[in-house]
Computed example of a mutant assay.
Amino acid sequence: MTLSPEQLVSFLFAAVLITASPGPDNLMVLGVGISKGRKQGVAFGLGCALGCISHTILASLGISALIAASPMAFTALKLSGGLYLIYLGVNALRSSGNTQISGNALPDQSLKTLFAKGLFANSINPKVVLFFLSFLPQFVIAEHGAVQWQTAQLGLVFTLQAAILFGLLGYFSGSAGSWLNRNPRTGLWLDRIAGSIFIGLGTKLIITR
Rank of each mutant, 00 (worst) to 15 (best):
P137F: 14
A59V: 06
L12G: 08
G167D: 01
M1H: 11
I57F: 11
L111E: 14
A20K: 00
F198L: 11
A121L: 15
V32C: 07
T203E: 04
F198Y: 14
M1S: 13
T186M: 08
P137L: 15
L201P: 00
K36W: 02
K117A: 14
S21P: 00
A176V: 15
P184Y: 11
L58F: 14
F139S: 06
F74L: 15
V157N: 09
L168I: 13
A162P: 00
P5C: 09
M72I: 14
K204P: 00
F139I: 05
L130H: 04
V140Y: 03
R182S: 14
F44Q: 02
V129E: 03
S60H: 05
N26V: 11
K117S: 10
S64I: 09
G167P: 00
V9A: 15
S102F: 05
L188G: 01
A194Y: 01
M72K: 10
A43H: 00
F158Q: 12
S95Y: 04
G97L: 01
L119C: 08
A15I: 02
G51H: 03
F120R: 11
W189C: 04
L201Y: 05
P71I: 14
L77V: 07
R209Q: 14
P126M: 11
F44H: 06
F198E: 08
G200D: 07
F13W: 09
G82I: 07
L79T: 13
F11C: 08
L50R: 01
T19F: 05
T113V: 12
A121V: 13
T75P: 00
V42W: 04
I86C: 11
G97T: 02
F135H: 06
A49C: 03
L154Y: 09
G81I: 07
L168F: 11
R182V: 04
S4V: 05
T19P: 00
G195D: 03
N122T: 14
T75R: 10
P184N: 12
Y84E: 05
V129Q: 06
Q153R: 07
L61N: 10
G41A: 10
G170Y: 03
F132L: 07
L66H: 06
G47A: 09
L12M: 14
S96G: 14
G177Y: 03
G97H: 01
A146L: 10
V9H: 02
R182H: 13
E143M: 10
G31L: 07
P24T: 13
R192F: 06
P184Q: 13
G89K: 02
F166E: 01
P107M: 08
M72E: 12
S196Q: 06
G23C: 06
S102G: 13
L79F: 12
P137I: 15
G62H: 05
L93W: 12
A65R: 05
T203F: 13
V128E: 07
L61R: 10
V32K: 01
T186Y: 05
K127T: 11
M28Y: 08
A15E: 04
S21I: 05
G118W: 01
A49D: 02
Q109S: 15
N125A: 08
Q7K: 04
I197R: 04
S21E: 01
G174D: 08
L133E: 02
F166W: 10
G174I: 09
Y87T: 13
N183A: 09
A194T: 06
L165H: 01
K36M: 13
A105F: 07
S134L: 06
S196M: 12
G62C: 09
A194H: 01
A68F: 07
Q100M: 13
V128W: 03
